[in-house]
């Protein structure tokens, strides 16, 4: 049943066994084609395997399941060097969450739009408290150096 499959999926995900996890998501999606959580997990697995092309393809081929996965879509575009597309995806999102703002900062840095990038970093740093604060300040230093 689905509950057992999700338990198995959760286990493989926690172990970083993304091959097995994808197989389980496929089983769930065969039984329940509209299951957004299983689909989300499948996309996460593909990204974790650095298969950004396939992740973006499944997102684009399943618009009924992917409408809320704008962070994942933009992240794939960013890693595929479709940086302008990534920025469009981010800016088309209403009420972007902190994950999207974080990615927006990275996208703007890649686009060498340093003034906007600085604004985004200041906002993200102000509104986060997690394990990445040191890395964020390193990135902020790179932005301010680029503005000199």
């Amino acid at each position: 049943n689905l509950s057992a499959l999700f338990t198995e999926l959760n286990k493989h995900g926690q172990n970083g066994d993304y091959d097995r996890a994808i197989k389980v998501t496929n089983k769930i999606l065969k039984a329940a084609p509209g299951d957004k959580k299983a689909f989300h997990c499948k996309v996460i697995c593909l990204i974790q395997q650095s298969d950004f092309r396939q992740a973006l393809k499944v997102l684009q081929d399943n618009s009924n399941l992917s409408s809320e996965l704008t962070f994942e879509k933009a992240y794939c575009q960013y890693r595929l060097n479709a940086v302008r597309d990534a920025l469009s995806t981010i800016r088309d999102t209403i009420n972007p969450d902190i994950k999207l703002k974080e990615l927006e900062g990275q996208v703007l840095y890649r686009l060498e739009e340093y003034e906007d990038c600085l604004d985004v970093y200041r906002d993200v740093i102000k509104n986060t408290s997690d394990d990445y604060e040191e890395e964020r300040h390193t990135n902020l230093s790179a932005v301010t150096a680029a503005l000199q």
């Binding site: 997990c41 960013y78 974080e102 990275q106 394990d131 990445y132 390193t138 790179a142 680029a146």
Partner: peptide
């Protein structure tokens, strides 16, 4: 080239499956 981290990758995470298991 200055150091610049891909912090966003850390946000690529499974959603909570608590309501599914």
């Amino acid at each position: 080239k200055p150091l610049f981290f891909d912090i966003a990758f850390n946000h690529v995470e499974f959603p909570s499956l608590e309501d599914k298991v």
